[in-house]
Design a protein around this nucleic acid. Sequence first.
DNA 1: ATGAATGCAAAGGTTTTGCACCCCC
DNA 2: GGGGGTGCAAAACCTTTGCATTCAT
Lengths: 163, 163
Amino acid sequence: MLKTLPCGKKQSTQAHSGSKNQDWKVLLDRYLKEKGLRATRPREHVAEVAMSRETHFDIQSLIKEVRAIHPEISPATVYRSVNTLCEAGILTETLQSQGGVTLYESALEDHHDHIICVDCGIIFEFHDATVEKAQQKAIESQGFEEIRHRHVVYARCTQPKRI
Amino acid sequence: MLKTLPCGKKQSTQAHSGSKNQDWKVLLDRYLKEKGLRATRPREHVAEVAMSRETHFDIQSLIKEVRAIHPEISPATVYRSVNTLCEAGILTETLQSQGGVTLYESALEDHHDHIICVDCGIIFEFHDATVEKAQQKAIESQGFEEIRHRHVVYARCTQPKRI
DNA sequence: ATGAATGCAAAGGTTTTGCACCCCC
DNA sequence: GGGGGTGCAAAACCTTTGCATTCAT
């Protein structure tokens, strides 16, 4: 499935085989049971909205979307739920927006790095095995063992584009 | 020049050839003139303290150091000066600390990426030509032209360490 | 019933802004 | 002298926390 970006590029929306898209419910349930936590309505609603996002989002926008449907859910609950979802391993912090706000995205997507166009602001995802492998080697030669990484390239579209 | 880190590693403090260490004064002056801005005492003091830092720092720590010597300089001025220094191209935002606070460092150092040890929290700098080259190629093949990048690897020390 | 989770409001912390005064050019 | 810069304090934000109440188990 392809989506046309403002810069004229096409980007996979990562609809994948469709299996992962429901996995989070299983994983979340398992995590909650393990920890003796509860599957409450507000918590599940935040999870539903968060996991339906296709790309990076910040908590403020999540709060807006959640409260548009369930105005009784407080911002504090959204913050608390997002933390729980991160601990459950189905969400991860990714980038920091220019304003320094933390952005999140599903932890169940395949790993990818990011290219941000400084002209049109679009966030493009890429994965390159050579880069990953070279990085792995470099890290190990320094005596470290990689856990995860965040690789963001600020760039400019070089192809004809329509801003 | 080597510095021993808490994890037992040694890291160059990048004292270099010594030429760059004064460059910022020239660059700042040039920038201020260009933009019709003024070389005021508080602004120069913030620059002096900021450029004397050897690694990443956050604004709060800068405020503390600046006010230790010049208590009359207000936090607002430090914020404003740091922004100016970034626009002048002698400082850059680098990472975001775990708390989401923006960290800065001199923009005149050689480019390097970062490894953050999730155990001891140390920020280790590395540069690997293979990684850089592979990235360059990957970005170009996607139709982008790199401007700058931020590559942070969260890892664990694998060598014996003293925390 | 029991303790986790929520909503609300208040607190905490960082960064920005308005404005009168100051001082570099 | 004029306009940018500063200090101060207030405001604006984002995020966390305390507490009484609600609700899942």
